[in-house]
Amino acid sequence: KDKSDDTNPGGVNMDCGDGEEGLSLEEILKLYNQPINEEQAWAVCYQCCESLLQGSRRRHSRGAGGYARRIAGAADVRVRRDGTVLVQDGQDSSDKSRLSMFTATEVIESLGIVIYKALDYGLKETEERELSPPLEHLIDRMTNVVENDGDVSRDEGFEATEEEDEEDKEPQEVFNSRGFRNVLKLCAAHLPSPSDAPDHYQAVCRALYAETRDLGTFLEKIK
């Protein structure tokens, strides 16, 4: 473990006062001083998309388009006690540049980069982690590094693989949400039973939160 900061292992707030705010992915990485595992990556990705999709729907209901948030780093992703994930909303930031509107494609790309960096945490620049093909494919798709014959789909960087549903009849909602729903589908398809995705991924994040708190408490006691 990182011994550079003896007074606060991993820089995590150990007073259990995080309440609804949870633990940031950055805090989790620092505390463990190692990357997240693949299952956690799938889960965090899924839960982030759920959170962003909900935010998109709220903004859409207020007549707003675009995204005020592009995920700048692991500090912007907070895992809550119940396993839900909060993606920090730039709306309250004093940094006015974060109030710019971003497309869903840009937000998905930023999420893919954050997830990859969490998997790559602590590795040297000359090293590369060997990811399972499905997870590498997911990140490829999210960050749009897949070669696709120059025909970049405008449907948020993803092919329209799903049937039209009621939501798809609203053009603005399609623009905002299709990319996220396709990421959710890819994450669900990773499971033996895709219909279990909401419960499963929330449980993985809930365990990630609990284990991190336990480790933090343990390190505090040792200190």
Binding site: Y32, I113, E125, E128, R129, E130, T143, V145, E211
Partner: peptide, 23 residues
């Protein structure tokens, strides 16, 4: 805590890390 299990290889020019580092 148990260490995460993963394999590490030298960074490859055509690998995902190289592609993402250019973004």
């Amino acid at each position: 805590k148990e260490k995460a299990s993963y394999n590490v290889r030298p960074k490859h020019d055509s690998g995902i890390k190289a592609k993402l580092s250019m973004k």
